[in-house]
Structure formats: structure tokens, C-alpha cells
Amino acid sequence: MRRSGIWIGGAILTLVVLAGVFAPWIAPHDPYAQDLTRRLAVPFWMEGALPEHLLGTDQLGRDYLSRLIFGARVSLIIGAMVVVVSGAIGITLGVLGGFFGGRVDDVVLFLITCRLSIPVVLVALAVVGLLGSSTTLVVAVLGLLLWDRFAVVARATTMQVRNLDYVAAAWAAGSSTPRILISEVLPNIMTHLAVVGTLEMALAILLEAALSFLGLGVPPPLPSWGLMIAEGRDFMFFSAWVIWIPGIALFTLVLAINLLGDGLRDLFGAAPS
């Protein structure tokens, strides 16, 4: 039972990743092709569905399944890029603070406190509002704002590892400080950071959807799930599926990533090292 989460989460995430990677081959239609004669076609389980549009079409007659599949790309790319950027910042700061302590740690703690006092959504809205929306900007803003948990976890785990004898042995063997950090400290805190990575990825995907919903995320006509929900807003009373199909997709992906993260945490927590 406890291990099922990691399998379910991993399986769903793998499916979504495969869908995103092979989107051009598995999507039945061009996600940008409009067909105004077939607007808001219903999905297959409803009366009057069109056989070539499995999940129906949106308000511009674009195939919903194809947009959903290409939308997985946007979510995953933004999620992964944000984790890379925020992970690089957070892990660097956390490891330096935790390893050196003293003044360095004071500075790192100050930066973490500063970061925690900044409201992410507000700053993201302001920056994107000022500079215009683009995928790069969303990644940059979220990456620069979501590193705090990486820093906190990296700092705490580094402080534990720093005092272990193998670090002392590496020091006594004449290893340089960068080498000690890279080959003795980092590999031993990586498991904890992987768990943080999944949490941050889920959060970044949700935030991207939220920004896109507000019209400040990825620019249309790019098929982002948040943007699809926003565009379907006006039709939700008569064509509710245009909202809840991408909604369910978003929910499932975030749930899968969180299940995977929880599973990894339990797995590593139970390991002796």
C-alpha cells in the first residue's frame, strides 16, 4: 500500500512525459488548426460527438485532445525548467550556508528570509504585467522565486553531513573545498533534494496555470492547460467540459508528481543511510 503511491505517480508522470515528448506524432490534429464550422464540438461520451474529435473542440474549433497533449509539453517544460533554475540557486546557497556556517550562513539565512517575505504570485503578476508574457519570463520569474525550499533543505542536510567523519577524512586527505562539496556532500543530500524537486515542480506547474489563467503566463495561442481553462471560462455554462478536461489533466499531473515525491521521501526515509 505504501509503495503504491510511487508506482501510480511514476506511471502517470511517465505517461504525461511520453505524451509531451511524442506530442507531434500522437496528437490527432494540429493543435493550432482552427475550424470555425466545428466550434465547441462535444467530447465522445456525449450526444452528437464528432468521431474525429475525441475530446471535442474549443471555441475556435481546435481539436481539444491535441491541445491537451501539446499542453502537457508546456506544463512539463516550465515545471522542469523552474526546478532547474530554482534548484541551482537554492542548492548553491543552502550548501554554502550549511557547510561554512558563520557569516556565510547569516547571509544565506537573510536571503531565505527575504525571499520568504516576497509574495510569489504578486511579484510574478507585476513582473509579467510590466514586461509582457512569455515562456522564458515565466520560467525566470518562478525560478528566481521558488528556490527557498531547496535552500532550506540543502542547508539543513549539509549541516548534518558536514560533521560526518568522511568529510573530515576527505579534508585530511587534502581534498579541496569544492571537491569536498561536490563529491562528498552533494551526493549525500541529493535524495532529500529530489523530494523537494518534485514538490517544486508541482507548485511551478500550478503557478504557471494560475498565471496563464490570468492571462499573464504563456502567451496564446500556445496550448497551456491554464490558458485553456481561461479561454473556456465564457462557455462553461453550456460547454462545461472545456474547463474541466484541462482541469482534470492539471489535477492528475500535480497529484502524480506529489505522489511520486511522497513515495520517494518514504523510500529514502526508510533507507539506513
Partner: peptide, 18 residues
Amino acid sequence: ARLIQPVFQDPFSSLNPR
């Protein structure tokens, strides 16, 4: 490092598990 080297008490924490 070429002059002096240590052997520590606990062989479980003195070897990098990774």
C-alpha cells in the same frame, strides 16, 4: 595530507556511502 592521515572511530560514518 602526505605527512599525517587519520583513522576514525566509526567506520559507518567515516566512509561516504555514495
